[in-house]
Nucleic acid binder design. Structure first.
Lengths: 117, 117
DNA sequence: TGATTATTTCAATAATTCTTGTAATATTGA
DNA sequence: TCAATATTACAAGAATTATTGAAATAATCA
């Protein structure tokens, strides 16, 4: 994953409106929702919603499918897993992880669990 | 996790400078780095770096420990796992997941893998 | 103590993002 | 075709965030 991709995803989810939209669509699963339903459900003005849907879609967090005059949006959470990998794949590569095993703020927990399983 | 916590984390990582800082510290593991080392390593002016370190720390992504006249920063990636849970814990709760099993953009993959393992 | 170094704070400007209103586009149904 | 509905595009002002320079704070060392 490129850095630009990552910052775009984070930027997309840094707005409470967009986070609400994404979580709503995650909940709705494959069914997704059309723009009007999202607008009603979250109480966001259609034009403002369109602005945020565009941002989420461009970040790759949503997919859109045309259904007649409706646009159906769905969340794509696969991208989230790639994002975590991007953040943590070099975890502790320049440090001895074991040092942190017994500290309260253990930044290597994820790496440890990966190794254990 | 509260919505405000989540948006703050996303906002923190939406800047390329802050993403660089976080990834650098993830790499450095428990050793972490002091502010001056981060400044040199990434070529960021000390006062600007301080601005971004403050943002990351307030979001909970970094911890700070005083060492004499140095401030040692460390990444806390545990928070990332909580964040993923916040995003996906209600995944497909209002939809039949199986519908998406054979589609290219399968938003439920994560849920499926969880169930399989 | 006095000088030096590390880091943070503050203020000002530049840049970016959000929201709203209005208009445009496109599909549906009579 | 015409009217109604769904959605998007554009433009302008308000609000927020980033960067820089200068100064302040605090710890170290001679």
């Amino acid at each position: 994953m490129k850095q630009k991709t990552a910052t775009t995803i984070f930027e997309s989810l840094s707005s409470s409106i967009r986070l609400d939209i994404f979580r709503l669509l995650v909940k709705k699963g494959y069914s997704g929702l059309v723009a009007g339903e999202i607008s009603t459900s979250l109480g966001i003005a259609p034009n403002n919603l369109s602005f945020h849907l565009k941002a989420l879609t461009q970040a790759g967090l949503l997919t859109v499918e045309q259904e007649g005059r409706y646009q159906r949006y769905r969340a794509d959470i696969n991208l989230m897993q790639d994002l975590i990998t991007y953040l943590t794949d070099e975890c502790c590569s320049e440090d001895i992880c074991t040092q942190s095993a017994d500290t309260p703020s253990n930044i290597c927990v994820q790496t440890f669990s990966k190794n254990k399983s």
